[in-house]
Amino acid sequence: MSSTLISNYFREANLPHIWCPGCSNGIVTRALVKAIDELGLDKNKVTVVSGIGCSSRAPGYLDFNTLHTTHGRALAFATGLKLANPDLEVIVITGDGDVSAIGGNHLIHAARRNINITTIVFNNNIYGMTGGQYSPTTPTHALGTTAPHGNIDKPFDITQLAAAAGATYAARTTSYHVNQLIKYIKKGIENKGFSLIEAASICPTYYGRKNKSGSAVKMMEFLRDNYIDIKAYDKLPDDKKIGKETMGEFKEITLPEYTDEYLRLIENLKGAEK
């Protein structure tokens, strides 16, 4: 029932959104709202923080506490909010460039602290807002306006990066696999610790046109046909792995959470001499 989702959780006066036709940002944003709705979270406590980029415009459309920060710094602002008031349900919306290039340091350290923030990465493999420059997740050999002769960089796997850095929940799916995306976001929010959910997304306007990926529908079909669950992928013979991408839950463990630890520290000092 998307109409009630819109009236209950969106700032309708700010719609329509600025995203291009065929962009998958709307799908991922709706998945987040659907997850929040299904979890029955208190809107007054939900705080959505973003950096700079196409996806980072999403909070402006959402009827929560919303904070649109500087490029790459969403997680650092969010860390301050969460530590200052642990009752807030802090969710970060970010893009591949925002979170793994300019904000890469904040990502690994937020993950390391295991602070209870849920990060949703809209990964469209390109800098869309600035017109199609290659990002840290642009595939090698792909084209971008700053990779006119083909990208010679190697891409990051953001989900595995977060998992390795200390996130206690890390999962990837795509903007095609919406139900799975909603499920992962719910699990991420429910995880008491740092969670990262990567949504493989599409940018038909810049990435698609530059790389002749075809229409938005064709790009969605690519997500449908080429993302394979990590467990199934592991069983494939090497020659069948070529051109395939992985999705699924990469990490799900329980560890002490940062703000809990800080509150315990305060508790332990109570009654002690200042």
Partner: peptide
């Protein structure tokens, strides 16, 4: 912590001010 307040050593200077702004908004 004795005042119920919070201290955090961030990963860099930029994060330091960013988190402080977050604290103020909270």
């Amino acid at each position: 912590p004795y005042y119920g307040g919070k201290f955090i050593q961030m990963e860099d200077e930029i994060a330091g001010i960013a988190a402080a702004i977050g604290g103020s908004l909270a």
